[in-house]
Simulated assay, not measured.
Amino acid sequence: MTKGPITNNTMRVKKMNQELVRQTLKTMKQGTKSMVAQATGLSVATCRSILLDLLDAGELVELDLEESSGGRPAQIYKYNENYSYIVCLMVKAGIDHHSISYAVVNLAGETVEKGCEMTEIEQMNEAFIYQLIDRLIENYPHIRAVGIGVPGAVHQGVINVSDIPNLVHVPLAASIREKHGVEVIVENDMNLTVYGLYQKQEYEDEKSIVVATFIEGSFPGAGIMIDGHIHRGNTRFAGEIAFLPLGLTPDEQFRQLHNRDTFHPLAARAISSLIVVMNPETLALTGSLVQPADVDIIRNECQKYIPEMHMPQFRLLDEPDEDYMYGLITMTLESLSYALELVEKRR
Rank of each mutant, 00 (worst) to 15 (best):
K3I: 15
V13G: 04
K14R: 08
M16E: 15
K29V: 15
S34K: 12
A39E: 14
V44M: 09
A45K: 11
S49Y: 14
I50R: 00
L55N: 11
D64Y: 13
R72W: 11
R72E: 15
L89I: 05
H98T: 03
S101C: 13
S101Q: 14
Y102W: 14
L107A: 09
G115K: 10
E117H: 11
M118L: 15
T119M: 13
T119L: 12
I129D: 00
R135H: 10
I143L: 03
V146Y: 01
V154T: 04
N166W: 04
V168S: 05
E178N: 06
E178M: 03
K179P: 07
E187C: 03
E187W: 01
L197Y: 14
Y198H: 12
V210Y: 02
F219R: 04
H229T: 06
N234Y: 06
T235C: 06
L244I: 05
L246Y: 01
Q253P: 11
R255H: 15
Q256D: 11
L257W: 01
D261K: 13
T262N: 05
T262G: 05
A267R: 02
A268I: 04
A270C: 12
E281A: 10
T286D: 06
I298D: 01
I306W: 01
P307W: 04
M311E: 04
F314R: 03
R315V: 07
L316W: 13
M325I: 10
M331G: 01
R346N: 09
